[in-house]
Design a protein around this nucleic acid. Structure first.
Ligand SMILES: [Zn+2]
Ligand SMILES: [Zn+2]
Ligand SMILES: [Zn+2]
Ligand SMILES: [Zn+2]
Lengths: 163, 163
DNA sequence: GCAAAATTTGCAACATTATAACATTAGCAA
DNA sequence: TTGCTAATGTTATAATGTTGCAAATTTTGC
């Protein structure tokens, strides 16, 4: 592993976007799903940074694009993208972020920096396994697991002494 | 442990409410915090069942009470109750549930039944520890951890064959 | 007690996030 | 072409949450 995960250090972010779009095209093709221009554009916008974007933020940019869009346009695109595992909704932020493990089956866990807003998506098998064990002890059958950790990322911790 | 946790089987729920209110009074007294009538009533309403209640659900009952309440009344009461660890907000539901570990320091993990709506709050040290380890590997300092598991509770699994 | 200060509440307006319902259009196949 | 299905446009509305300020209540210092 690198000394610091992508969102937390400068990187060629355009490469992230390009890769995400390429992955998305491949995944949609595999599933005979149509990555229409609107859907692709929304995905691209979500990927503009590693900070989650609200649906209405997306909507605003579409409007700048000259696209005469209403909320359902965005929500439908986001639903589609979620369905194919291309974006995740961050419940604690009411916002959406590009999946960094698209295509692979994974249980996302999100590290959300309170200061810079960047989000790192992890696949943490130990966490998933602990959650499953805890659920099993209650005879509970998990179907969807939300793990969102809010805190301070390494970069922001270095930049200044918060608190 | 009992064969099945409280929310998942019939029980004298009034005892849950009474206990929760008594705990709340004690905790507030300890902290010199004022459990005013409105706050206490909101806590009582949240505890009406083990199903999380939306802020506007609470508001509606207050209105039935004859209490001329507006949204801020409810949100302020809920903020207060959260501050003293008496209720938790379930981000994936936009709803609130009474804390079943009030007073004790704990990292809640919530098992949310899709079918009956009941929520079981667990303290799962193994999960917390796995989350902390995963965060530490990224040099991330967690401040607030949200773990919400949506699925099928034992009772609903027994009642019928969903899916 | 009593006035000043701090906390809590009432209230109106507003902001944000998300969905419902139905008409229209675009892609595709017989 | 024609008909079917998926996708989008459009309008309205629902659901959730916040801001700002004034009034009332409670606490504090005297
Ligand atoms: Zn993912
Ligand atoms: Zn940061
Ligand atoms: Zn709790
Ligand atoms: Zn159930």
């Amino acid at each position: 592993m690198s000394s610091s995960a992508l969102p937390y250090r400068p990187h060629n972010h355009q490469a992230c976007v390009t890769q995400a779009l390429a992955d998305a095209r491949a995944i949609c093709q595999q599933h005979n799903a149509r990555l229409t221009p609107t859907r692709e554009r929304v995905l691209e916008l979500i990927w503009q940074s590693h900070k989650p974007l609200g649906a209405y933020d997306v909507l605003a940019v579409l409007a700048e694009d000259g696209h005469n869009a209403a909320p359902p346009t965005v929500y439908r695109a986001l639903d589609f993208l979620q369905q194919y595992g291309l974006v995740h909704r961050i419940a604690s932020l009411n916002a959406f972020t590009g999946c960094t493990h698209a295509g692979k089956s994974h249980n996302g866990m999100f590290l959300i920096c309170r200061w810079c807003g960047n989000v790192l998506e992890l696949t943490a098998p130990a966490v998933s396994s602990a959650v499953n064990t805890a659920a099993a002890e209650e005879s509970f059958r998990p179907e969807d697991v939300t793990i969102e950790v809010s805190g301070c990322c390494p970069r922001c911790a270095a930049d200044n002494a918060h608190d």
